[in-house]
């Protein structure tokens, strides 16, 4: 008991110190995370003037479309940002896809991944992701060497075909979800007359 007491006292003191620092930094960490999130969203919906983001709606899914955010511009519904969680080549990854109200891609960003730097991670780079911009429909990943390039063909990153496919599939899933969401939105407007 005599030896356990100092351990107990020190644990309590250290816990108190941690709680104090946690209290000091909590607000700042939240602001940072929120700022990083809106900055990421703003970079995705680059063609839309003065975007205003709604709260994030969770779908409750653990994989696939996990959440989405509605974007308005001047009070008008302008776009939707969809977060998709999927399996990359090396581990779980997530991607944010911004779609306009006519269902075309405004921007794609890989928000987290565990791909290998220099290989799979290149499929999270802007060179690869900018291929999706302004296109709609279903994307198909090809390697340059063995295919004719169609509008919806996405050229895979060299040495990262699997990761490229996984990203393209996630974008397809996001667009499918976006089109349903947009249809539902216009159906409601029509119903209201």
């Amino acid at each position: 008991m005599k030896t356990a007491l100092p351990l107990f006292i020190i644990t309590v003191l250290v816990t108190a110190a941690i709680a104090f620092i946690h209290g000091l930094t909590e607000e700042r960490i939240k602001t940072n995370e929120h700022a990083a999130y809106t900055a990421a969203l703003s970079a995705l919906v680059i063609g839309i003037p003065d975007p205003v983001f709604s709260e994030t709606h969770e779908t409750g899914n653990r994989t696939g479309v996990v959440s989405y955010t509605l974007v308005t511009s001047g009070g008008e519904f302008a776009a939707v940002v969809i977060n998709v969680r999927f399996m990359g080549d090396q581990g779980p990854a997530s991607v944010a896809v911004a779609a306009s109200t006519c269902g075309s891609v405004l921007g794609v960003k890989v928000t987290s991944h565990e791909e290998t730097p220099g290989l799979g991670a290149n499929a999270a780079g802007t060179d690869f992701l900018s291929q999706f911009t302004d296109k709609s429909g279903i994307f198909n990943v090809v390697r340059t060497a063995n295919a004719r390039i169609h509008t919806n063909d996405i050229i895979a990153v060299t040495a990262a075909t699997n990761t490229s496919r996984a990203v393209a599939d996630a974008v397809n899933e996001a667009l499918r979800f976006a089109s349903q969401l947009i249809l539902k939105f216009y159906a409601e407007i029509l119903a209201e007359g």
Binding site: T11, V14, T15, I18, A19, H22
Partner: peptide
């Protein structure tokens, strides 16, 4: 959850 490091190591 901010105590996770200390809890886990103990």
């Amino acid at each position: 959850e901010y105590l996770y490091i200390i809890a886990f190591i103990l």
